[in-house]
């Protein structure tokens, strides 16, 4: 664990010296988890599950879980807290795809208000909850490790 922390610190220092924080995430390497943690000023805990690990970043009012496959790719994220984290940073390369699909959905007539369920070309996004406590998840179905079901992403 000590070595892991040191590695993380090194990554964080590299990150800090690199200037602008680049959150990362969906579809990216595990190192991006640390960028998120640093950008949020949070703490991270790692937990192993069969076929993947879950990196949990905790800050006041928000918990973000990043699901990492054995090959080191982040294939899902979940969040829960008083607001919504910066999804542009969390979805990274997939954000525009999300926003386009969301805009299309909102332009639909009749536009109804309900928990979000969105499938884009590469992504599944769901959001629910209410004021003060909202939660959501996004995953890349094609990156889901074998043995992992969407039900495991909570």
């Amino acid at each position: 664990m000590g070595t892991w922390v040191q590695t993380m610190l090194v990554i964080m220092l590299i990150h800090l010296t690199a200037g602008t924080p680049v959150w990362a995430v969906l579809g990216q390497a595990k190192a991006s988890v640390e960028k998120d943690r640093a950008a949020m000023g949070g703490q991270v805990q790692s937990k192993l599950a069969p076929g993947y690990s879950v990196e949990t970043i905790t800050v006041v009012g928000m918990t973000i879980k990043e699901y990492v496959s054995l090959d080191g790719t982040v294939f899902a994220v979940t969040w829960k807290g008083t607001g919504v984290p910066n999804l542009r940073l969390l979805f990274d390369a997939y954000f525009d795809e999300y926003l386009d699909a969301l805009t299309e959905l909102q332009n639909k007539k009749p536009r109804l208000r309900r928990p979000l369920m969105l499938k884009t070309e590469n992504l599944v996004i769901e959001r629910s909850g209410h004021a003060r406590n909202m939660w959501g998840r996004a995953f890349i179905p094609s990156h889901l490790p074998a043995m992992v079901s969407p039900k495991d992403i909570q």
Binding site: G61, A131, R132
Partner: peptide, 27 residues
């Protein structure tokens, strides 16, 4: 689809203590 919202749910404040503590609340 509205001029505004009257939010009369279960809470007193729309964020509460966590926005008082956390300056990175994104609200």
């Amino acid at each position: 689809g509205f001029n505004g919202i009257l939010g009369i749910g279960l809470f007193t404040h729309d964020c509460g203590i966590s926005c008082e503590i956390n300056d990175n609340n994104n609200l």
